[in-house]
Write a protein that binds this DNA or RNA. Structure first.
Length: 271
DNA sequence: CCATATACCTGGCAGC
DNA sequence: TGCTGCCAGGTATATG
């Protein structure tokens, strides 16, 4: 489900409300991708100081240590004063003095991992190799260009890998490549500087616009406030196999790259 | 080190 | 109606 925009929208929907809360209890459901890494009772009494995001990870900072939360493919967070009874797919309840943060994740590709600091081994195992934040000023065109020059894999897969730039998942990779007129199968190193400049702009625009619109609602995404997003209503290529390109009316093509579907317009994306 | 395949898990849907 | 197979927003890990 969640790419950078959905994770960021989720963060914004509860960060201010949970900041300052004290942990009353932590209940975990079925096993997630990785074990929590400490006894849940150890967290009782700790204070939530802030909620940050790094790539698709949420960092819930406590006055001592932090929780790394990943939504995987099907996860969503809900923060409310009172929650109903836990369902079969609710795998974390973080009870605090301000409300309960609940993780709902049917496929359980998500994770909640405790780390003593963001620089500790358990945190760095997950965060250490991540690329630059696309919406930050540090996403520099010239650095981006230089990094792509060293990658001979197809540009779509380089974007998805997250080692150059984070947060671009399967939906937004296809969308950004359409906006910049790039064929997803082109090797990253082959892209011209002007073309990379278009891609750099497209990534920022598509992600920022999706955040502003509340994320995508393919299937079941909802923010922690229960609102759903509207981005899918205007996807240019994602999920539009065979439908006419919005710009030139040519049928959108679908191919497989690294076991993942890619969507593109064969006429508008030639570079 | 690099690029690609695999594994994790459940639900929804198309096709028979 | 009910079964089967395939597909789904991610990414660490294994494999070549």
């Amino acid at each position: 489900m969640p790419e950078l925009p959905e994770v960021e929208v989720t963060r914004q929907s509860f960060a201010d409300r949970i900041a300052g809360a004290r942990v009353l209890a932590l209940h975990m459901g079925k096993p997630l991708r990785w074990p929590l890494g400490l006894e849940p009772t150890e967290l009782v009494g700790r204070q939530v100081t802030q909620v940050r995001r790094r790539g698709k990870y949420l960092l819930i900072d406590l006055d001592q240590g932090l929780l790394l939360v990943h939504l995987g493919m099907s996860g969503s967070l809900n923060f409310d004063q009172q929650q109903g009874p836990r369902g079969p797919h609710d795998h974390m309840d973080l009870e605090t003095t301000r409300g309960v943060l609940r993780l709902h994740d049917p496929r359980r590709f998500g994770a909640v991992v405790w780390a003593p600091s963001e620089f500790s081994a358990p945190a760095q195992k997950l965060l250490g190799h991540l690329g630059v934040e696309p919406l930050a000023d540090s996403f520099d065109l010239h650095v981006f260009c230089a990094e792509l020059k060293q990658k001979k894999a197809p540009i779509k897969q380089v974007l998805l890998a997250g080692q150059v730039v984070v947060g671009v998942g399967n939906i937004y990779a296809s969308e950004a490549l359409f906006l910049s007129g790039i064929r997803p199968s082109v090797k990253a190193a082959q892209l011209s500087k002007p073309r990379v400049a278009k891609l750099h702009t497209a990534i920022r625009e598509v992600l920022a616009r999706a955040v502003a619109k509340g994320g995508s609602s393919l299937r079941d995404f909802v923010s922690a406030e229960g609102k759903n997003g509207y981005f899918q209503l205007e996807a240019s290529v994602y999920g539009r196999t065979g439908q006419p390109c919005r710009r030139c009316a040519t049928p959108i093509k679908q191919i497989m790259q690294g076991q993942r579907s890619t969507f593109f317009c064969p006429v508008c994306q030639k570079y």
